[in-house]
């Protein structure tokens, strides 16, 4: 396989069955998005955000890109902005891990820190203020940009259909809502009987303690109508499944992957015998190694210790 540059290498990820974790009579398949060029599903989203912005005339030479993100989206945007020639600024909470910052800086991104206590909402606030004050800044804002679910509607879902035309159900994690919305709509267009489930990370009290109910936020790109169920997964269950994936299936994935596979196992029972369930693995485990998630020892004690930083 040859490509003109790294921006062309997005997608066409492997779909791998999990024969040791799948319950009897059902097969769970995992789509390994960690195989994308910067190591996550967000390469699809970043490519789509930039492409659609260029198409609409929001991005052109001389403009700069700004996005509130401490994670995979920032890394993916940094790579694509580098090859497309747009300087990138990422706004992130000041407690973001050193590794994340180092990767972003290596890829040429400028980092602006927002107060830790405000979490990701604080990064959004700061980024919005910066964008309003500087007309040369373009903020794609993945939580509200239809190019985000579009990436999944146009690439992720068609790949699933091509590899597994008889897909019965799909499970994706709930962050921006782009994955479940985009994949879900396309799969249901293919076959209206396909079920779509979201795995919602249950953050620790530490995170919720900082939130006010009136400031709650439902991303614009999330279409709750496309879902057939939304199931929350706490740190312990996500961690247990993440460790089973590496121990039993030889797949070293991030903690969100464990959450989605845990939901796939749970919903498998309510689907008919012979069902094929696709879960999406957003990324590999490397970025989370330093959290201690894969350390030897009692998983409950580890979950307890790192629940505050696990999903951050």
């Amino acid at each position: 396989m040859r490509f003109a540059d790294v921006a062309q290498v997005v997608g066409r990820t492997p779909l791998v069955a999990l024969p040791r974790i799948s319950p009897p009579g059902r097969t769970i398949h995992l789509k390994l998005e960690g195989q994308n060029p910067t190591g996550s599903v967000k390469d699809r989203v970043a490519a789509s955000l930039v492409r659609e912005a260029e198409r609409a005339g929001h991005l052109r030479p001389g403009r700069r890109v700004l996005e509130p993100t401490s994670g995979n989206t920032g890394i993916a945007l940094a790579a694509i902005c580098r090859v497309r020639g747009y300087p990138l600024t990422c706004v992130m909470p000041e407690n973001t891990s050193e590794e994340r910052r180092r990767v972003l800086e290596m890829l040429g991104a400028t980092i602006v820190l927002s107060p830790a206590i405000e979490g990701s909402n604080g990064s959004v606030r700061v980024a919005r203020e910066m964008a309003a004050a500087d007309p040369d800044l373009f903020m794609p804002f993945q939580y509200g940009n239809p190019a985000n679910p579009l990436a999944h509607h146009e690439t992720t879902a068609p790949e699933i259909i091509a590899d597994l035309p008889d897909v019965t159900a799909f499970v994706g994690g709930l962050g921006t809502g782009g994955t479940v919305t985009g994949v879900g709509k396309r799969l249901k267009r293919w076959n209206p009987d396909v079920k779509v489930y979201a795995a919602e990370p249950e953050y620790g009290d530490l995170v919720y303690g900082l939130r006010n109910l009136d400031e709650g936020y439902v991303p614009e790109v999330l279409d709750l109508e496309v879902l057939d169920g939304r199931i929350k997964v706490d740190s312990l269950r996500a961690l247990e499944m993440t460790r089973r994936l590496v121990g039993e299936e030889g797949i070293f994935a991030g903690v969100s992957t464990g959450a989605s596979v845990a939901v796939a196992v749970r919903v498998a029972d309510r689907l008919p015998e012979g069902s094929d369930i696709v879960a999406l693995s957003p990324d590999g485990g490397w970025k989370y190694l330093s959290t201690g998630a894969y350390d030897p020892g009692d998983v409950a004690a580890i979950a307890e210790r790192i629940s505050g930083t696990l999903w951050a």
């Binding site: 967000k42 993100t69 401490s70 994670g71 995979n72 989206t73 979490g119 990701s120 993945q142 939580y143 994690g173 962050g175 921006t176 809502g177 990370p201 249950e202 953050y203 995170v207 919720y208 939130r211 006010n212 109910l213 709650g216 936020y217 439902v218 991303p219 929350k232 991030g254 969100s256 957003p282 990324d283 999903w311 951050a312």
Partner: peptide, 12 residues
């Protein structure tokens, strides 16, 4: 029965 505030984001 769990009551939770709506929170977006995570490792995004």
């Amino acid at each position: 029965v769990t009551i939770m505030p709506a929170v977006a984001g995570g490792a995004r």
